[in-house]
């Protein structure tokens, strides 16, 4: 049987705004096997980052349960959660903003070791920090420099070293490479891959970059306005995208090659904000195939192939289109 590390069930996160209730994450369920990567893609405002933060309880879920190795962490107290954080870490999008500007590289990586009292001696702690720096490919001479003195790639390595210092089992990577240049992006992606192999890490990889997510993830969940609208193994999703939104999204990737260009599906309109949603498919207003049913009923995720789930009424007819 599959060894499930993290299981998220019916998680909701609502925010009160002056305009009404914002359904940032609306009934999302998924699970991630140990040592695997779940990619979460979607456009800005689709709730992917919020989902990542709710899973780590950096934001409190409005409803739902988050099972980490069978234990529901949504019910843990503040202090229980603090010690649980050793197992669940996060790598942030903006490497500079997520590092305290007044702390040196050494201090930043050392902090978790001190907080959780993982290593008590100052000397031993320092050795561990240097060891971690080596693991992520940071030269020892940066030990007492400040993050702002380094470039984006090195900053992101600091963030990775900090997350690794507690030997976590699970890491949420929130757009870890989108602030970096292409050549540096590849360096960091390779590093994350190597670390996963060496330490058996499990990732939730949040990104808007479809080519990166395809390369990096075992499974992919596509989100739209707070919902997962399609979820499938990586190759399956790219070979048989079924939801009209996924199809449009995949066709919109600018391919860096002159051959095998895709037919573009240009979507009309833009993503709206999930406030006061009517009972309808959230994509219906932009969908090329929307029928009356789509405006009156909300489709549920249903399995159409092994491991391939779609939330669309059109699913049975969809195969004809993708061939």
């Amino acid at each position: 049987m599959a060894d499930v590390l993290l299981e998220v069930k019916h998680v909701k996160k609502y925010f009160h705004t002056p305009k009404g209730l914002l359904h940032a994450v609306d009934d999302v369920s998924f699970s991630i096997e140990r040592g695997k990567t779940l990619g979460v893609v979607g456009e800005s405002g689709c709730g992917k980052s919020t989902t990542g933060r709710v899973v780590l309880r950096l934001l409190e879920p409005t409803e739902g349960s988050i099972l980490m190795e069978g234990q529901d962490i949504a019910g843990l107290s503040e202090s229980q959660m603090r010690s649980k954080r050793r197992e669940m870490q996060m790598i942030f999008q903006d490497p500079l903003a997520s590092l305290d500007p007044r702390k040196t590289v050494g201090q930043i990586i050392e902090e978790p070791l001190r907080i959780h009292n993982i290593i008590s001696g100052a000397k031993e702690r320092q050795n561990r920090v240097l060891e971690l720096m080596e693991t992520v490919g940071l030269a020892r001479r940066y030990y007492s420099t400040y993050p702002h003195e380094l470039d984006g790639g090195r900053r992101q390595r600091i963030g990775i070293a900090r997350a690794l210092s507690m030997n976590p089992k699970f890491i949420v990577c929130d757009e870890p490479v989108s602030a970096l240049d292409v050549s540096i992006q590849a360096q960091i992606l390779n590093l994350l891959e190597d670390l996963q192999k060496q330490m058996g890490l499990t990732y939730m990889f949040i990104t808007h970059d479809l080519s990166v997510v395809h390369h990096f993830s075992d499974n992919i969940a596509v989100m739209y306005l707070g919902r997962i609208i399609e979820m499938a193994p990586s190759d399956e999703l790219f070979a048989h995208p079924t939801h009209p939104y996924t199809q449009a999204l995949l066709s919109a990737i600018p391919v860096p090659s002159l051959e095998n260009r895709r037919e573009r599906i240009i979507l009309k309109g833009e993503i709206t904000s999930p406030i006061n949603l009517p009972k309808a498919c959230r994509f219906a207003s932009r969908c090329l195939y929307a029928t009356e049913r789509c405006f009156g009923e909300e489709p549920e995720l249903t399995e159409i192939a092994p491991g391939h789930q779609v939330a669309c009424f059109r699913q049975d007819k969809a195969d004809a289109k993708t061939v």
Partner: peptide, 12 residues
């Protein structure tokens, strides 16, 4: 974000 990062590593 660095405050969020501090919370993420379990700081009081």
């Amino acid at each position: 974000e660095h405050i969020e990062a501090a919370r993420a590593i379990g700081a009081k």
